[in-house]
């Protein structure tokens, strides 16, 4: 009886906490001109079947590069006036992540680490407007990025499972171990430092973040990206965001060094 009473009290208390959660911060609205998104001017290539390597693994490379587009919010289908993630998610915020998210949206992302040339991080790399290429060897998948700080990311392939080294030092990009499941590259990532934003809008995470990424080239021009965000210190349950990334035939990566003449971040004063 007493136990039931205590449970009841807790349920009520939790209900109060959640009932008092503030509403989600609103989309700040369009901030770029349509001409800043030259997507429509790119000649449309005709998609063929997804290529494979001689040994049957999916081939994520070729003569060209992947371009994610500008997807400022991994949980909304439009953000700042343009197409964003593939689907809307009712994000299971904990109170601190909701508060942090709202602050970041409302103060115009003034503290965005990416604007200070720090690593974009995962999964944001797959939603931000920086072209990238994927280079596969027998035992690794190497992502090379044009933008941010001309970064690289290595996924070590472990066909026997997802074995991470013990006592990982927390990092921006985490420790990534992958394997192939048919035509899908599945990447398990832990060991984050909790500092990177999950997207430009400002979804936060903790150092307990555990990501499961799934990369599937559904045809020669299309990469489906799905990421499950499991972070019990930041969200009440795991949630999944996704994006469709387009292939730009013939595109090469340019060198882009964010830290070169970086004079912008001091002007990011928020409001």
């Amino acid at each position: 009886m007493r136990a039931a009473f205590l449970v009841g009290v807790w349920v009520l208390a939790l209900a109060c906490v959640f009932a008092q959660q503030p509403p989600l911060a609103k989309d700040p609205g369009p901030f770029l001109r349509p001409s800043d998104f030259p997507e429509d001017k790119v000649p449309k290539a005709v998609a063929g079947p997804a290529p494979h390597l001689p040994d049957g693994r999916p081939d994520f490379g070729g003569d060209g590069a992947w371009y994610p587009g500008f997807n400022g919010n991994i949980a909304e289908t439009t953000w700042k006036g343009v197409k964003s993630a593939d689907k809307h998610v009712d994000v299971p915020f904990l109170p601190w992540t909701l508060k942090t998210y709202n602050e970041r949206v409302e103060n115009r992302a003034k503290d965005d680490p990416e604007a200070r040339c720090l690593p974009v991080g995962v999964p944001r790399f797959m939603f931000d407007p920086y072209p990238f290429q994927i280079v596969q060897t027998r035992n690794q998948v190497v992502f090379i990025f044009e933008g941010d700080n001309y970064l690289w990311r290595i996924v070590n392939i472990d066909p026997n499972g997802n074995t991470h080294p013990k006592n990982l030092k927390p990092t921006w990009l985490g420790d990534a171990v992958g394997h192939y499941e048919g035509d899908t590259l599945v990447v398990d990532v832990i060991g984050f430092n909790g500092l990177a934003w999950l997207d430009q809008a400002g979804h936060a995470s903790s150092d307990q973040l555990h990501l499961t990424e799934r990369y599937t080239r559904t045809d020669s021009l299309t990469l489906k990206y799905e990421v499950t965000i499991d972070d019990p210190q930041a969200y009440s349950k795991p949630w999944t965001a996704s994006n469709t990334i387009h292939w730009r035939p013939g595109m090469e990566l340019m060198e882009s060094i964010c830290q070169e003449d970086e004079k912008s971040s001091i002007h990011m004063i928020g409001k």
Binding site: P119, V135, T137, V142, I144, Y150, W152
Partner: peptide, 22 residues
């Protein structure tokens, strides 16, 4: 690390600016 493929070789550098070279 040297990432060797038939048409391109990547040099991937730890430290410094965390850059790569092709």
């Amino acid at each position: 690390e040297i990432v060797q493929t038939p048409n391109r070789i990547l040099f991937v550098y730890e430290g410094g600016a965390h850059v790569w070279r092709q």
